[in-house]
Each structure stands twice: as structure tokens, then as C-alpha cells.
Design a protein around this nucleic acid. Sequence first.
DNA 1: AACCAGGAGACAT
DNA 2: ATGTCTCATGGT
Length: 221
Amino acid sequence: MNWMALHDALLDHFGPQHWWPGETPFEVMVGAVLTQNTAWTHVERAISALKANDALSVRAILALPDTELAALIRPAGYFNVKTRRLKALCQFLLECGVAEAPEQLAEQAPLPELRARLLAVHGVGEETADSILLYALGLPSFVVDAYTRRSFTRLGGLTGDESYAAIQRRFHAELPADRRLFNEFHALIVALGKHYCRPKPRCVDCPLLAVCPHAKTLPLR
DNA sequence: AACCAGGAGACAT
DNA sequence: ATGTCTCATGGT
């Protein structure tokens, strides 16, 4: 199948997704950690709580006692784990000298090095690193998530057992390194996943099957 | 009432 | 390198 054609079909079907839902680059970074294996609606409450307590900044988060930070982000789940991860991320930004303007992290190194430095931060795995690179810093690093693997497996573009790195290489090979394209495509894939590629699919009559001729014969898993 | 959500780390194999 | 367990709230 043609991956660019799939993007166009998705855009036509679902319309622009306006991702990432967040007002500032730092808010996007925090959201990237909080949404790990968690529904976005829960993350919104946690971020609202942080805002309501003037805690949505690098220094404010680092200044909060763990128990207080955990209480604020409680609705996002895994609050003890995410408390440590948020602090590790903020500590990293502080040490980079971008505590007041986290978006300036993008000026400090080329994309591959930035990615490696993010991956070295506790609690920042591949998807979180790429989410930060793409949606907070505006750099063309494709985000691969559970929906991406499920949707493309079901549409016939992947076998389903590829590693994260292998899937990302595939996207980078199939598409021009355009940050706006990567932004919209990933968001559209999530929209597709939510509607048609849940673990237990309710509706298998996906209107996008026309773009992916092999999809009809694929087992749903 | 089980199942799941825009994962990552620790640990064993 | 790859597989399994844990972390936790709140929707459907």
C-alpha cells in the first residue's frame, strides 16, 4: 500500500486533528509522560490540577514534595511512578539550562543526539522521546504507538512483530522528513485506531479499506 | 464487572 | 535481544 495515500485518505476522512493538545512545549512534554498507557481525558485533569496550583513549570515541579506532586497528578494513574518521571524530566531540562524555555532544547544538538539524550532520562522511552521531539520541539521524528502497530498490522503494512525502531525506520523510509506531515499522520493514525482498530474491534467496516486492498483478508487481532 | 487507555523500567531468560 | 511483571485511576 501507499503510505502517503493512506495519510491523504485519513485526512480526508477524519479532518485535521490539531495535535498535540497542549498550549506550550513544556505542557506537551509533561503530557507525553502523563499519557503513558493512560487515556488522555485523565491526563487533562492532571494537567488542569497542575495549572490550578501554578505547578506547570520546571522549577515548580522540582520544588514540589513528591507526595504533593503525586496528589496533583493522581487522576492520570501510576502517580508514584509518574512523579519520579516528571521530576527526572524537569531535572534534565534544568541541567540543560532551558528551565525557563524548554523549547530551546531544540537548539542544543541535532535530532539524533537530542533523541539519545532524551532516552537517557528516566521514564522517557522511545515513544515519549519521539512525542517530545515531534510535538514539543517540532522535529521530524515519527511517533510509533500501540495504535500504529495495530492499525498498520490490520491494514497490511506491518506483520505486527516488528520492533519500535524497525517500524519507525519504515515510516522514515516511506515518507519525506516533514515535521507537519509526521504530526498530522500520527494523530490521524490514533483517530483511525480509536474508531476501527481497538483490541476488540466493534466495527470492521473501515471505509479506508479501499486504500489498503489486502486488509480485508487479514485476521483481526 | 472485566477490560482498557496515545508505556517504561526492572528483572529473568 | 526478547518476554513477563508492575505500576493505578477512571471510562465503557
